[in-house]
Design a protein around this nucleic acid. Sequence first.
DNA 1: TTAACAGGTCAACGGTGTTGTCATAAGGTG
DNA 2: CACCTTATGACAACACCGTTGACCTGTTAA
Lengths: 237, 237
Amino acid sequence: MSERVVPPAARRRRRPTKQGVVLSEELIVETALRLIEEHGADALSVRRLGRALGADPSSLYRYFRHTDDLMLAITDELIGRTLSTWRPTGDWRADLRDLGLRMHAGALAHPRAAVLSSYRVTGRVHEIQAVETILGVLRDAGFPDPDAVRIYHAFVDQALAFGAFDSASVALPQAAREAETAVWRATYARLPADTHPHIAATAHHLVTDMSHSSYPAALDLLLSAATTRLSQTKDKS
Amino acid sequence: MSERVVPPAARRRRRPTKQGVVLSEELIVETALRLIEEHGADALSVRRLGRALGADPSSLYRYFRHTDDLMLAITDELIGRTLSTWRPTGDWRADLRDLGLRMHAGALAHPRAAVLSSYRVTGRVHEIQAVETILGVLRDAGFPDPDAVRIYHAFVDQALAFGAFDSASVALPQAAREAETAVWRATYARLPADTHPHIAATAHHLVTDMSHSSYPAALDLLLSAATTRLSQTKDKS
DNA sequence: TTAACAGGTCAACGGTGTTGTCATAAGGTG
DNA sequence: CACCTTATGACAACACCGTTGACCTGTTAA
């Protein structure tokens, strides 16, 4: 029992399950994603996944050591989908802006999966490819290695963190989501100026601004700070 | 059974449990927090909490409708603690930096609660107080209202998003957490330079940098971009 | 042709949140 | 003081969960 998972390359004996399904890593990941999107993050359990696949739950342990392994495979699949259509143009700032917005949009397209997976380090192919590409964009732009790594880290984490953060709102039950947007109109917009002068003075801006994601603004702030830093670096040399 | 939770004000008959403990909402929240701190994030379950309190698990349902209710009560307690000791000094940039770091640290101190609650808008007193204060800091610094709101939004969401993001790693089962840090050493640091030149060139920086939170760096980038914007605004007037 | 074994199934273990039911002691009332 | 109401704790049960050891069988390579 010490090792029941066989590397994908060595898989050959593809016996169908009792219900006639031929399992594979891809099929399992695909089905898991569908399950999450259709029935919520809580719907993902080994038993339910087995049922959805037409296989005994324990069969899945031939493909994944534990649930966490499966989660990582799902995550990597999502990273791959996000990057598959992105191509850097040579303008580092525009490229990173585009990529950041894509990552954010990608998370929002699969909010329930994003909430579970955004913070994981997979060490799988798609992730490695992404790291290499982004680092390349920054180093080619002229950032010294320590800056490149620091900005890479902040950039990626910001995109992932906001992706998960905004996904969490989207994944909320509809009633709860509506209740939260109502708070800005019903509570904040009605605070009297004598007790809460700053909120009262900006109430109009708050109501319109708080209903959107702040990620684009945060991303632009990060990129403009990076631009400033790069020009300072070039002045010195 | 439609309503087994009695509002705190109406509680009078404080009968002790079999083991002699007198339950209360405060005691339960306190014990839950202690449990998380002492035995890790996974240690919080209704059954374990009941055991720690010396009460039957089902007794807790007299105080909280479900575990999520308990989670929110814990979160509310934490928000209060985080803000209670912070006082703005008049230096807007230093004040926001301090507050951001406090919010982030507060989340990390109770990761399991942070993950579940960071993205919620409560509209309660502590939250309103925080909004008013932060907006005041920005407007007093000289930011025009639209900028103040935009920067406020980005600042708060970034602190909360990174708080939840970094908490998620901390809340991971220990084995998974160790596996992730190992990935940087075992996988990324060993990629050959001919296939992954940028990773290979910065491997040393990656290994040291990726094991820390990037929030302080992201926070500084945001604040320095805001500073630049403020000076541009002042030039025009 | 046959032997090895990958990959499926089955049953079980110890955990989880949650609820219906019951017992009882606390507290108000006369 | 005695009585009645009921808040609140305890118990048992339900339906799940992830995971594993043992078993069985069809596929494949020799």
